[in-house]
Amino acid sequence: MRLPPFQFLEPTNVEEALSMMNARKETLKIMAGGTDLLNRMRFRLIEPAFVMNIGKLRDVDGIDIGENETVIGTNTKLKDIARSPLINNKFRAIAEAAFEAASPAVTNMATIGGNILQDTRCLYYNQSGMVLNGLERCHKRGGTICLAVKGGKRCFSVCQSDMAPALIAFDAKCVLQKKGSTRTVALTELFTGNGVTPFAIGADELLTKIIIPQPKNGVGSAYRKLRLRGSVDYPLASAAAFVSVTKDGEVNACRVVLGSAGASPRVIDGRSCETHLESIAQKAYDSAEGIDNLQMPGAYRRKMAGVLAKRAIKAAMDRLKEGM
């Protein structure tokens, strides 16, 4: 299927990129690996006047493991994250999420930044004209109805990123740069929860880095994903779990982050160090949105959010015990 027309830009450094973005604002779209962007363009869901390839930017690629924090450049490929021994060691859930994302060949192209900022998805939105021509426009296509939920007053499209839940489980932050300024925000703040405009990021802002704080003392983490085939497919439900302990071995944080549960990852923060599996499963179930807008029925996916939350926590606890 043909891509719509656009003008192509290819900055070679961040400054240049920021200037280009500043000049063109909404008319410009960033292309990292292109695996999400180009598919949406092909379906003509978006037709940007400018496409800016950030593949040639230096300094925003690679993993830098420091003492207090680990910095991952936005252009780092998922394949490199999945394979990094250090990520596997210290941030197991993140490595697992990267390993499970898409298929091996796609992770050769897909970047971490693009993964976080990939658009939310819906069976009634991510379609070619074959489906969409003649259908009333939904919220996400600038209309006023929802095709997935009869009478739906808002958009129920789903964030199917594998990386976002895993990163949020580790309390990751991200660095956003625009011409003349830089801000660092918690990754959770990047998500609006609104399916139509899922990200709180300016059209002139470039995500440059993801920062993962170094957890103190013992940590266990895990990522669990549900899909019908063993590769390629987006998660139908997913859960990243993070458990940490004090010096004395007492659990002081226990967090589950759900993916594919709504327009943003859903955080279940067990501040009370709750590790009771059934109650976490229940909370996950309560928190997940079960809408019939992906492959399997919403009710089923919602149940699976509970099962995966439980399984992820259990795996994280086991790893913690094993000292991983």
């Binding site: 192509f8 290819e10 292309m31 690996g33 292109g34 695996t35 180009l38 598919n39 496409v51 390839n53 593949g55 060949a105 796609v106 050769n108 192209m109």
Partner: peptide
């Protein structure tokens, strides 16, 4: 890589 998701110019 997937050549269908790769721009020739890039």
């Amino acid at each position: 890589v997937r050549s269908c998701l790769t721009l020739a110019v890039a």
